[in-house]
Design a protein around this nucleic acid. Structure first.
Length: 220
DNA sequence: ATCCCGAGGG
DNA sequence: CCCTCTGGAT
């Protein structure tokens, strides 16, 4: 196979993006947070390593029992643990959720900061979670949140080469490949795609809508 | 039974 | 780089 030119790669990348749009039209956040940035932050934090479904099962009771950041800031850890017990990492997350509420109240006047560095000062909020919150709650697109889904997909599509062996290098490759207008949709859609089709092991190439565009397609 | 794979800490 | 925290998916 001849080496793909940059122009050809860019065209392939844009076709990938178009098909993602068709497949995940106007992707809305699956988490239940009532449009409240604080609740969104907590919900995204809780959703790490678990399903949105599992998170949506516990957050309504959390909002009911602790309606405001101030309420959550003074919560008993054991009460919060009881509420979120059915999701992964609940012990760590219960402590983080309360600390987040305390910091939001004490340092940010009860409002989630609209700044990626400030967001990442909240316990349990890393770069990925911060990007999701900025994008979802405020429509701010700082970059592309490279979690393991995006990392895996970028490498399978050969949009990131073997030397792009870190999330940061992979993000750089994607930012160069895609115009800024696509960054937000990528943040949204690739995670869905990575969860249901381009899964880590035994990817479902047989039912994949990108197979003809993918150098790694197994056509299984 | 093993892998998943975000954040934080060593 | 290494490891831990957990329920869920496979």
């Amino acid at each position: 196979m001849p080496r793909e030119t940059m122009a050809a790669k860019r065209e392939r990348a844009l076709e990938v993006a178009r098909r993602m749009n068709e497949h995940y039209p106007a992707a809305e956040c699956a988490l239940v947070y009532g449009g409240d940035p604080f609740r969104l932050t907590i919900a995204v934090l809780l959703s790490a390593q678990t399903t949105d479904k599992g998170v949506n099962k516990v957050t309504p009771r959390l909002w009911e029992r602790y309606p405001t950041p101030a309420d959550l800031a003074s919560a008993d850890v054991r009460d919060v643990e009881d509420i979120i017990r059915t999701i992964g990492f609940y012990h760590t997350k219960a402590a983080n959720v309360i600390k987040c509420a305390q910091m939001v109240v004490a340092d940010y006047g009860g409002e989630i900061p609209r700044d990626i560095d400030e967001l990442q000062k909240l316990p349990g909020v890393g770069r990925k979670t911060a990007n999701v919150v900025l994008n979802e709650a405020f429509g701010i697109v700082e970059g592309i949140a490279v979690d393991t889904h995006v990392f895996r997909i970028a490498h399978r599509l050969k949009f990131a080469g073997p030397s792009a062996d870190t999330p940061a290098k992979t993000e750089t490759a994607l930012l160069k490949l895609y115009p800024r207008a696509w960054w937000g949709p990528i943040n949204h859609q690739w995670v869905l795609f990575g969860r249901e089709t381009c899964i880590a092991r035994n990817p479902k190439c047989g039912e994949c809508f990108l197979c003809d565009l993918c150098p790694s397609c197994g056509k299984a």
